[in-house]
Design a protein around this nucleic acid. Sequence first.
RNA 1: CGGGGUGUAGCGUAAUUGGUUAUCGCGCACGCUUCGGGUGCGUGAGAUUCCGGGUUCGAGUCCCGGCACCCCGACCA
Length: 414
Amino acid sequence: MLQSKLFGKTLKEPPKDEVSINAIFLTRGGFVDKLTAGVYTYLPLGLRVLNKVKQIVREEMDAISGQEILMPAIQPKEIWQTTGRWTDPGKEVMFQFKGRSDKEFGLGWTHEEVVTPLVKKFVSSYKDLPVYLYQIQDKFRSEPRAKSGLMRGIEFSMKDLYSFHRDEKDLAAYYEQALAAYQKVFSRCGLDALITEASGGSFSKYSHEFQVLTNYGEDTIFYCPNCGYAQNKEITEIKAGHKCPKCQTEKIKEGKAIEVGNIFQLKTKYSEPFKLEYVDENGKRKPVIMGCYGIGPSRVMGAVVEIFHDDKGIVWPESIAPFKVHLLQIGQDEAIEKKAQVVYNELLKQKIEVLFDDRPDATAGQKFADADLIGIPNRLVVSAKTGDKIEFKKRSEKESVLVSLAELVRKIEN
RNA sequence: CGGGGUGUAGCGUAAUUGGUUAUCGCGCACGCUUCGGGUGCGUGAGAUUCCGGGUUCGAGUCCCGGCACCCCGACCA
């Protein structure tokens, strides 16, 4: 991609009033644009990041036999009345409105009311179970206070997976698989997520949150720095300073954290109101046992920025960076231009994602500052100074090295 | 929903007790300059001062009402 053609521009100054790191850097870097509080446009750069997070999620959900579907955001009132959630908490969290003929609708803020009747249409026997369905879709929640950039929106990206089982044992086994898959998702995104025991809220008593320690977190958790055992403050019985009840070695610490994922054992909470049942080997009707599993890709993106940045800008982990390589051409004479073009073409040939700063009017200082701000993990410079070679520097490091084109391709591939 | 803060050009801002044609920087356009850390100089375009009402000879500035954004709290499957 040629930077001269890239839609969006970097900003020298942070947007007024904005305090959260992710809002400041994502806006300044030209990743997102705020339309109104809690509602963002993803510009080309930002969409690439978001899509990479989604793709990692997708791969890990597929790996635990998830099948991707896409459910509607617009949902009729009736399905929500079945569970009573049209009024509680629907009146509070749901955007509700009327269509033609006064038919009432709401925007989806979770999808149990859609997925449960859906599964009922196709599942009738124990032979049809288990089923694992997921989607990646924007959720809408009328939050009392949208804030902190991507951290809490009223429209935000979410992956929700729903599992359907014949008994609790099968659910418990899958729950463990999902837990492991979630850890993989977050570690692939560069995040160290603590599996945190939490209240199930209105869902159930059995839930785990995936919490990433950061000062900008909204939750407070107590955790063990040694074994990673953690509990949300809302339910905790453990206290800071006490020995970890699990490993008995370290003292429990208190910290701010952001919730990037949450998994629940729903059991029959939704299968019962919708009468989702199956017939077992003995011809007996039984309720289907359910679980649900959520990850917020947009919140993951925000959390990554909160954690991976310095005073100059973002430092993306390779796995979700908008591009793998940022190639800067410093100087405008023909020889340099030619050389940069050769490097660019070679990278494209090697199928390495590259953003080429070919802007003729930008000075060296501007290009370096923008590269730091945007935070692509590998920076290449071609200039009069680099001679036959190319300067290579990681965003996360200070030192640069001069390498040949061939060495370079190897270095980036590793 | 309670508390606090802020609304002036695409972005960031200045404007005395209410007083001329609303300031400066960034960005943008043009010219020169410069070319390894937001280079320097010049010229130019760009504004319903959040919206509505009021006071006044005169309102960005004062008063009333509303809206939006940010922060704290409440809330948060």
